[in-house]
Design a protein around this nucleic acid. Structure first.
Length: 238
DNA sequence: GCGACAG
DNA sequence: ATCTTGTCGC
């Protein structure tokens, strides 16, 4: 959908470099997260030119998941590619294990991309996670690509007050370490909870979220992905 | 033991 | 996340 010839699948632009069993039971998945978090790399992100956003919508009852990916240029935020995928959702939602639930359909849509993003924004946590391995970190390590997490609500609590101006933020701590931030993207609206996923640092994460946020609370890539996922679900049921 | 808890 | 009705404000 939207690729030049209209039907390229698995162009290989994005490769999963590490195998993973999405049916791994919760207990083992938790241990795996703790172990894999050691592979997360925090470093500056070279000036990104292309950014992607991913989101998943669910059918009534949560039987099916519709994943959408939107790729845009920076700093113009011009959409250059969109892809989508539909999968049956088999894993139950458990705080801290979102990647297990949304992983299969998300991996599938990522593999459809023909444009390689310099960084991918996920709707959820990066390292601001109980085991420092939210969905953004999970996909960053699996695909060896820079990722960030941008959640609408907190998984880990925010420490301190944050100012009311765009760009103001308050730290998210775990064991006295700053992992992320509650960031004001627009005055007068609830902050977003951001954290590095992989191959970026917190400063670059904040810069990217501000660079992709225009007149809405959420970064354009995930906002557009959200809209696309919802429209696909709507089209599918009628 | 109790409460909190991305989507 | 999804399910719902109404409400406030530009």
């Amino acid at each position: 959908m939207n690729s030049p010839a209209g039907n390229e699948v698995n162009s290989g632009i994005l490769r999963q470099v590490m195998p993973f069993d999405w049916s791994t039971p919760p207990g083992k998945a938790v241990l795996w997260q703790r172990d894999m978090s050691r592979r997360v790399i925090l470093c500056p992100l070279p000036e990104p030119q292309v950014v992607a956003g991913i989101d998943v919508a669910y059918s009534a009852g949560g039987t099916n998941g519709y994943a959408a990916a939107v790729v845009m240029t920076l700093p113009k935020l011009k959409i250059v590619e969109t892809q989508s995928e539909k999968f049956e959702i088999r894993y139950p939602y458990r705080p801290g294990l979102l990647a297990m639930r949304e992983g299969p359909v998300t991996a599938a849509v990522l593999k459809k991309l023909t444009r390689r993003p310099d960084v991918i924004i996920f709707d959820g946590a990066g390292i601001a996670h109980p085991r420092r391995f939210g969905i953004a970190s999970h996909f960053g390590v699996l695909f060896d690509i820079p990722t960030i997490g941008c959640a609408k609500t907190a998984l880990l609590s925010v420490v301190g007050e944050l100012g009311p101006k765009r760009g103001d933020f308050a730290p998210i701590l775990l064991e006295a370490e700053v992992l992320g931030a509650a960031l004001c993207t627009r005055p007068g609206v609830q902050p977003v909870h951001v954290s590095p996923g992989h191959r970026v640092d917190l400063a670059c994460t904040i810069d990217l979220v501000l660079a992709t946020t225009t007149k809405y609370r959420l970064p354009e890539p995930i906002r557009q992905a959200h809209r696309l996922a919802n429209s696909l679900r709507a089209k599918d049921r009628q």
